[in-house]
Nucleic acid binder design. Structure first.
Length: 259
DNA sequence: ATGTCGGCAAAATGCCGA
């Protein structure tokens, strides 16, 4: 069973790339981020025609997450939005069950510029995620928290091509990294890290300055697995070629294969 | 500071978010 996450950076303009990737990669479950479209304008018919059921939490102009399940898979929504702040209007969290597993599509706030209110929001949102994740990690069912975490875990080459040029970015700040470590410490496994530690496996390449052709990337899309999911983990990878196509997202699909 | 995108308000570009 293949489970993937893909920050599409606008599902409307990315629809050809998304449908093409679904057709060739055939993930059983795909979590999408940055839909950048309202609930009413989500391309439901096109997704269904590709063989997927979907639930989505849209927002006009930015954010937005979705869970897609191939051939239905008994897709059922469990939660939209994180608990802990009724005033939070951002569409960044969608939790569902399908194909016998629980998945959450996560779009963690970017947090730039830092310091500032956007960085404070990032850390507050992260704290709410950690609080909620504590209730999921001990599940006897496989659980996967997957998406764009907007965190580069370390300065190592496995995580970023050149940390120095991103030193002041919100993605590399000690507070962002500490929150990510606290989440992992609950008992989650970072799948790419577990199977490919130290290797430069990036998931995002900025549109600026020809970063993809230089492989000047960052690993910020993460798949976190609880123990029952970890026990079934066989492969993990990134569909890099998708980033090199016409009118691509700045992220590539990132995935795991479970038994 | 800069570079490039997607999407918005609004009708061409300028702004925001990334």
């Amino acid at each position: 069973m293949k489970i993937a996450t893909f920050n599409v950076n606008g599902i409307t303009s990315r629809l050809p790339r998304l449908l093409e990737w679904l057709e060739e990669a055939k993930p059983d479950i795909a979590c999408l981020q940055e839909l950048k479209t309202s609930d009413e304008t989500f391309p439901r018919l096109e997704i269904e025609a590709a063989g997927y059921s979907a639930i989505w939490h849209g927002q006009k102009g930015f954010n937005g997450v979705a869970v897609l399940a191939r051939d239905g898979g008994g897709l059922a929504e469990r939660r939209r939005g994180l608990p802990g702040d009724p005033d939070d209007t951002h569409s960044r969290y969608l939790e569902a069950s399908a194909h016998g597993v629980i998945v959450a599509a996560i779009y963690l706030p970017n947090g730039n510029p830092q310091p500032g209110p956007k960085f404070a929001y990032k850390l507050a949102w992260f704290a709410r995620l950690i609080e909620h994740a504590a209730s999921l990690v001990a599940s006897s069912e496989p659980v996967l928290l997957i998406g764009d975490y907007n965190v580069v875990a370390t300065d190592g080459k496995g995580d970023i091509y050149n940390a120095a040029s991103w030193k002041k970015d919100a993605l590399l700040q000690p507070e962002s990294r500490e929150a990510y470590r606290r989440l992992l410490a609950q008992g989650w496994t970072d799948a790419i890290h577990a199977l490919h530690e130290g290797k430069p496996i990036y998931t995002f390449w900025d549109y600026f300055r020809d970063r993809f052709s230089r492989d000047a990337g960052l690993r910020i899309d993460h798949l976190l697995l609880n123990a029952p999911a970890r026990a079934r983990l066989r492969e993990a990878g990134v569909d890099r070629a998708v980033r090199g196509r016409e009118k691509p997202s700045d992220h590539a699909p990132t995935w795991v294969v479970l038994d």
